[in-house]
Every structure is written in structure tokens, then in C-alpha cells.
Amino acid sequence: MSDRLPPDSSAGLSGRLAGLLDRVGSRGEYREPSSDPSDPAVEFRDVSKRFGPVTALDGIDCRFDRGGIHGVVGPNGSGKTTLFEVLLRLRRPTSGTVTAPPPAAIGYSFQEPQFYPNLTAGENLSVFTRLHGDVDPEWRRSVTERLRLDRVRHQRAAALSGGFRKKLDVAIAFVSRPELLVLDEPLAGIDRLSRERVIELIVEHAQGGGTVLVSSHDREHVDPILDSSLALYDGRVGRPE
């Protein structure tokens, strides 16, 4: 289980019970990518995810090559966030096989920012830096300054504005320079300059050999940098007829 929980998994006993029920009847499997650079960083094979009578993902087949920037697009309710949660092992697939790096090798930001609300912005970055071990302090400083988090580093995270909350969540994803970045709506609710800086960070990460999966409603900003795009509609791959 990841150290950063999705919004509906952080409510104590009820959250743990929801997590247990989520796994009951789930027979999907996980595998880690091979060392062959020609093999994909992430692959879904006939992956489905059901919540009782509701099918959120229906027989998903897709692959994302290493070192690229890959978009996951579709309207609200199409299954984008569920796809990411399954990838991150936060929700186990009901069926199918997911090939992906272990959670420790993935940096990710959620559609709803997740961090320790009673710690300051700076303390949150310190905590997640330590969790990932050896993080270059110059890189952490660069991410902090480029997203203008240095000006709020002493403020309690829960008291931050919506834009700074989002940028803190994104910074946590980038700080470890992970093998794989999974970014759910990273441009939502932030100012123009910050959007440009996030785009720059995404491009730099891919140029350095990392892999990025990103969903965004800001298609005009994201589309120009994508190497591939996966369209989801009603939990299925492809556009509606």
C-alpha cells in the first residue's frame, strides 16, 4: 500500500474496511517490468475493475513505452482516475494483469491533492524526500523554487490556497525523480506560469529517460508534448461510436 492514499481511503476504520472490500473477489495480477528496454514501462492486459454492479474499467488493453509522455484522456467518469489507482496498486483489478514498477519507483499526484495537512509545505517535502531516500537537495530546491513553493514553505499545508495545494502535491511527485510519473490533472487550478513550469518539468523528466502518464482537461497545453494518447470512454478504450 502506498504512503499517499486516495481521497476515499484515509478515513480510519471506514477507509480500511473499504480497502478490504475492494479486494474481495478481485483476482487481477501484478507484474513488474522486465529489464529489457524495448518492453513497455506499463501494460494492461484485459484489465477490468468493478465496484459491485458498476464496471469502471472494462477489458482494458494498452501499453506505455519507456521514456515517453503518454496522455490518458476522456470525459469525467470515463475511468481515468480508476486506471491510475489500479496502476498504483491502490485498487486491485477485478481481473486481468497489470505490469508496472513497484509503488516505490512511482511518483504521483492525485486529482485531489494528498499530503499531511498539519505539516507545513516544507515539512511535507522533507517527509516525502526522506521516504524516497537519496534525493539531490539541489533538485528539491529547483522544484520548490520553480513551482514558487518557497514563498509558502512555512505555511501549514491545510491552510494553503487551492493552487498551492495542487503545486505541493505535484512537487511531491517530482521530488524523487522516479522511474515513472503518474499525474492526474496536474494543471488543474494553477496559474499560467505554474502550468508552464509543470509542463517543463514533465518534458525534462522524459528527456532524462523517465516515463510520464498524465491526464488533463487542459488538452491545448498537454497535447503538443504527448508521444501517445489513450482515450477512455465509459471504462473502455476508444472513442464512442
Rank of each mutant, 00 (worst) to 15 (best):
G52S: 10
P240L: 13
L230Y: 10
Y30L: 12
L5I: 06
R66C: 06
I199H: 07
F51P: 02
R141L: 09
V72S: 04
D150H: 15
F110Y: 14
I60H: 04
R192Y: 08
R130D: 15
R165M: 10
H132E: 03
G209E: 11
Q114W: 00
G71H: 08
E185I: 15
G52T: 04
G12F: 15
G12K: 09
A100H: 11
T82Y: 09
G71W: 09
A173G: 12
P113E: 06
R50M: 06
G189A: 07
P40S: 09
L168H: 13
L187I: 04
T129Y: 00
L232Y: 03
S228K: 05
S176E: 00
L149H: 08
L226A: 12
P53S: 14
D8N: 13
V143Y: 04
G79L: 07
A18N: 06
V212H: 05
R130L: 10
S161D: 01
F110V: 00
R66P: 00
Q114K: 10
P93E: 11
A105C: 08
S194T: 12
Q114F: 00
I225R: 08
L232S: 07
K80F: 03
T144P: 00
P240M: 02
S216L: 06
L226W: 09
G67D: 06
A188C: 04
S215A: 15
R197V: 14
L83M: 14
N124I: 07
G28M: 03
G208F: 04
D39K: 06
R192W: 08
V98I: 14
S14P: 00
S228E: 05
D58M: 02
Q114P: 04
V175T: 10
E138I: 01
L88A: 07
A56L: 01
P101Y: 14
V152N: 07
D184Q: 10
V152G: 08
V237T: 13
G71F: 10
S215G: 12
S2I: 00
D134L: 01
I190N: 05
P113A: 11
V198L: 03
A157D: 05
M1W: 11
F44I: 03
E138F: 04
P186S: 12
S161M: 08
L90H: 13
T55E: 07
C62R: 09
S26Y: 02
T97N: 03
V86S: 12
E43M: 14
R140S: 12
I199Q: 05
I106L: 10
F51C: 04
F115T: 11
V214P: 04
D136H: 08
P40F: 00
A157P: 11
K167S: 11
L88W: 10
V73D: 01
G25T: 06
G238P: 02
R197F: 06
G210Y: 11
S176P: 00
G19S: 15
D136E: 13
V237W: 07
C62N: 05
E85G: 01
F44G: 06
P224E: 08
Y116V: 14
L125Q: 02
A121W: 11
F64S: 03
E185D: 13
E29C: 03
V198G: 05
A100C: 15
P186W: 09
N124E: 07
V182P: 13
L90V: 02
R4C: 06
S215W: 12
